[in-house]
Design a binder for these strands. Sequence first.
DNA 1: TCCCTTGTGATTTTT
DNA 2: TCACAAGGGA
Length: 860
Amino acid sequence: MPGFADDIPFFDEDDMPPRPAAGPSGIAARAMAARSGGHRPPDYLSGLNPEQRQAVETTEGPVLVLAGAGTGKTRVLTTRIAHILATGKAWPSQILAVTFTNKAAREMKQRIGVLVGEAVEGMPWLGTFHSIGVKILRRHAELAGLRSDFTILDTDDVIRLIKQLILADGLDDKRWPARQFAQMIDGWKNKGLAPNEIPEGDARAFGNGRGRELYRAYQDRLTTLNACDFGDLLCHPIRILRSNPDILKEYHDRFRYILVDEYQDTNTAQYMWLRLLAQRPSRMRTSDTPAVGRDAEHLLAASEDAAPATVNICCVGDDDQSIYGWRGAEVDNILRFERDFPGATVIRLERNYRSTAHILGAASHLIAHNEGRLGKTLFTEKPNPDDPKVMVHAAWDSEEEARAVGEEIEALQRKQHNLNDMAILVRASFQMREFEDRFVTLGLNYRVIGGPRFYERQEIRDAMAYFRVIANPGDDLAFERIVNVPKRGLGEAAVRQVHDASRALGVPMLEAAGRLAESDELKPKPRAALRGVAANFTRWRDLLDNTPHTELAEMVLEESGYTDMWKNDKSPDAPTRLENLKELIRSMEDYESLRSFLEHVALVMDAEQNENLDAVNIMTLHSAKGLEFDTVFLPGWEEGLFPHQRALDEGGRSGLEEERRLAYVGLTRAKKNLHLWFTSNRRIHGLWQSTIPSRFLEELPEAHIEIAETSSNYGGYGSGYGSQIGGRNPYGASRFDSAGNGSFNNSYSTPGWQRAQQNKTEATNRNWGSRSGHAVERIGYGEVDSGYGAGRTSVKGRTIDGELVAKSVTTTKSPFKVGDRVVHQKFGNGNISAIEGNKLTINFDKAGQKRVLDGFVTAA
DNA sequence: TCCCTTGTGATTTTT
DNA sequence: TCACAAGGGA
């Protein structure tokens, strides 16, 4: 089989002396000219502020760039790379640039491309930790007991595999859930721990003390399957580099410059990986470094007494934006950079180009409550006295919160603001629902970012499993997944027999299936089915090398009966699934072969997003990191939700600090307008609970915030908030309870409140039917769903003098009649119980009674 | 093999 | 409260 390793140029160009890598833009040439000829700095440096420029030009030695939110972090990274290339310090292939997400890698690549042109194509080592890990591992797979064509398992495969092991061990898989153990393994791998290195306590905590054995069995099984999980993509390379000094040296020679993005998010394994590559070999005692693991202290010890040679490593990050501690990130890595790399240059970027002075003031003041930070103060050079302050709003409950935010959004929309420039950032995804419901009612376009992703959908995984078996007949997990999908009458018993035969014969399940089908061990029916499956795969495999892979893929889905399965499926989402399968085939066109496509999917789980639609963005605070919006709404600032109770219970003080950093991330996403919300009541797990405002609200500086006049019918602050504060706030009195400073208590009579009431009435009148369709987009699903139901067109409301002209509500005759059975994409099937113009009241079988516009439903 | 009942647990999520 | 998974019964 043609190995992947062959595709990776490693010592390309090495015989030639480095020369400036000039792209078509000729930037390098101009840079050189500028250098020799005179005093003018090259173009790409102009427009950088002094600190940014220092970060770009300090190419030698270890550099830590502490880049606060909105200070031009990505710009520094990309310009730095352009600078290294333009000055001829290194070949594109000699720069290692790592990011966490594919999105970040893509963006970086694109922005470097703008600066240096095609030279960016020569940067094979620009990518995520995992994609670079794969690249290294494919080259040296045999040193990890794998072949270079190993498969990368996704979480789903891993859980199924672990479940088999747990059952094989005679354990109860309900008492010891596979999912939980998968997370434990992931945690250990994040720390770079092999089975023999995990703490005794951890080992005993699972499966009646069988944790270590199970972990070991899991690793053995992966080796047998010639497979890896995500953690292995880091751990195997670490082990290989550790135990093979000659290989490590190759990489040392290769990587002249190392750049790391979001350094505060690195976990221990990533840290070890970086340290290995960054440490020069001169005095590193590879031989007595222990096998991967225990913890990073071993590496530190090795490096501290060895006085590491100068390394051109540049880490960029912001300790205040470290929000992934719960999945293994170690803020400590960034906090101790100077200790790790003595003589490091530390550059602070504090000049913020994003937000107003009020927003920055609020964010800085909040984050200052954290201890153990490196300390940065963001500032802006252009404070504008007219900028609005950060608004703090109260609502009675989440429904009112959603309604009020919706009104604010519509008000902004009337002022010609784009929905794309607005975002609602929530702490937990259950909060999204209320907003979605409200926006569906309003007919307001929105998109949800995050959530289940395209490649994680059932139909996509099934299809991929077929492709995987074709590319790699030894992929038993994939084979098991689809052997009876669509249903072929191969039940549990038959699959077990195949499994046993596979073990007994020492061959993959597919081959075992083929042989079983020729024997008399099975009943005629399953035997015929198995024979069919085996014959199909043999045939498809023969076509692999001389059929275009998209054609083959289509053929496979047809001939296996998979597409028919969905065509015959009557559930409402079956058409979407077929659509997704088509999309899958389409996306395969961008790849050369089935194998390169599979590799891509294993590493890049997200799909491209569609930004053409003007829609409000809804996402979690976590997924908002790195983004910015003109207007940001932060709902749910209540104790227990934000900071989240579980973070407090499990993380104690550091948990609280991480929550505070999350709040800081949220605040600093806003460029111009920032609205914080809290409610007095919230339903949690179905129970109404009265809540108290988040302590974070009290940590905001008064100078930069304004308490919004309530627009509530229910008396938000007055009855709910104010009254609770008196006795029950365990965190001490809030400055919000005194009646003095912009208090909530007398806001009912203010002009603002009256105005708000006025607006509210207007808004309510306008809501129904102002737009006849609206679009909902789920990014990551790879699909754009314009409107629930029939109308695939989105009719925008027309605006005259800032007022939306409602499309007539009552004069439109609905095509439905009472009693009709209809389908709604979100709510499912239901019967119409009342019709008023084009508004339908429908009793949904599952979702209960809802009022929806007729455009959103189709006859069942 | 499918459908309905029952039980459980319910932050954040990339690769 | 609600969503999803798993087990039992037809």
